[in-house]
């Protein structure tokens, strides 16, 4: 049986703008992936607990509130704490260029900015999920 890629799309933080998260979820679905969407206003703790229970291959984080520098690395660190450090974490949203390197250094594999094509996201996940 071919391996199904399982992805958690999650929105940490307090903004309620989930259009982007939903569009990405839908695109991944159409690419044959199983996507768990947990809705808006999730804490990093909730996101990681969900990822562990669902045993996902990847987590896509969407944040438009500006709190990405705090929230994204927290998710990566909690994953490591729970022994799930191998999960591929990527992010998207309104993220200033100057923050991207710092996020990558903190363990977020890739950042997709507004205008990024969903094909790029799909290709990235397929290439990088172990």
């Amino acid at each position: 049986m071919d391996k199904k890629i399982k992805v958690l799309i999650a929105k940490p933080g307090l903004d309620g703008h989930d259009r982007g998260a939903k569009v990405v979820s839908r695109a991944l679905r159409d690419a044959g992936m199983e996507v768990i969407y947990t809705g808006i206003r999730q804490t990093p703790e909730q996101i990681v607990a969900t990822a562990v229970q669902e045993d996902v291959d990847s987590i896509g984080l969407s944040c438009l509130s500006g709190a990405h520098n705090k929230l994204f690395p927290k998710v990566v660190n909690l994953l490591k704490e729970k022994g799930a450090g191998e999960v591929l974490v990527f992010g998207g949203g309104i993220i200033p260029d100057e923050d991207i390197q710092g996020l990558k250094d903190a363990g977020i594999s890739e950042i997709f900015l507004p205008g990024a094509s969903t094909e790029d996201t799909i290709a990235f996940i397929k290439e990088n999920v172990k």
């Binding site: 979820s25 199983e34 996507v35 768990i36 969407y37 999730q42």
Partner: peptide, 12 residues
């Protein structure tokens, strides 16, 4: 063959 698994939203 893909899916959106959204039941969990209500149980978070």
């Amino acid at each position: 063959g893909g899916a959106i698994l959204g039941d969990r939203i209500r149980m978070q």
